[in-house]
């Protein structure tokens, strides 16, 4: 079986004709920026396999290293063509780093790469108008919270405050924040499961992905609740 690198040796550097590995943004041999590969995914940009558990410290180090090679500042005096490639490649690098360094963005990106349909965080403008289904175990708490939020909004509309109710809402918020952290932990646990499954060629990837989607939905739902409390209390 060819190694990942051999499989992708597909182009020659425009400048020195050395082979350029797929998704590589500059030539390893002469250092010149390469035409943008539209097909490169964010993991490939960093030379990573499609694993979810990432050491963000080394990701940052690599991001800085690549930035020094690709940033448009370095190409101010280069040809217009190289300037354009630098702009494209640097934006790809930045987009990749931004996505991979954040656990949730990384998980969502991974799922999309794997062809799983998900509701993307923040992208959907209708997000808050059309919240996803209430997770079953939260039904009661959510019902209670919405009652309290409505009451608080009415109180505040008249210019008043209700310290007891405020305290109740803050307590509820804390509980939801704890659940948010719990969900985050769970998502990271799913990363481990998936990365291990990949390593052992054990195929229950789809099942794990579905659990990830569910966890993300749950997270989004709780996050919106916390935001609602913050907005109502003006904190």
């Amino acid at each position: 079986m060819p190694t990942a690198e051999e499989k992708f040796v597909d182009v020659a550097c425009w400048s020195c004709a050395a082979p350029v590995v797929h998704a590589q943004l500059f030539c390893a041999s002469c250092g010149k920026v390469q035409p943008a590969h539209s097909g490169a995914d964010y993991f490939e940009v960093f030379g990573l396999s499609r694993k979810l558990a990432i050491d963000t410290t080394s990701l940052e180090r690599e991001f800085y290293r690549l930035s020094r090679r690709l940033h448009p500042d370095v190409y101010t005096r280069a040809s217009e063509q190289e300037q354009n490639w630098s702009l494209r490649n640097a934006s790809l690098l930045n987009d990749a780093y931004r996505t991979l360094k954040e656990p949730i963005a990384r998980t969502e990106y991974f799922l999309r790469l794997e062809g799983v349909e998900i509701q993307e965080e923040g992208k959907q403008a209708s997000d808050r108008k059309n919240p996803s289904r209430v997770p079953d175990d939260l039904l009661e708490e959510v019902f209670e919270l919405n009652m309290q939020l409505e009451e608080m909004r009415m109180t505040r509309k008249t210019g008043d405050d209700d310290p007891d109710l405020r305290q109740d809402l803050l307590t509820a918020k804390q509980q939801f924040e704890a659940q948010l952290a719990e969900t985050d932990n769970f998502i990271q646990q799913l990363w481990q499961e998936r990365d291990e499954a990949l390593a052992s060629n054990f195929d229950f990837g789809d099942q794990i992905k579905q659990r990830m989607v569910a966890a993300l939905d749950r997270r989004r739902y709780i996050r919106n609740l916390v935001r609602d409390v913050n907005e109502t209390l003006d904190t």
Partner: peptide, 24 residues
């Protein structure tokens, strides 16, 4: 950065504080 979607709402395509150059 956002695009106007149905109903006059904004769909965000590049979040603030994204390192530039940035694309979507």
């Amino acid at each position: 950065l956002g695009i106007e979607a149905l109903g006059g709402v904004v769909a965000k395509i590049i979040d603030r504080n994204s390192t530039i150059p940035a694309s979507s």
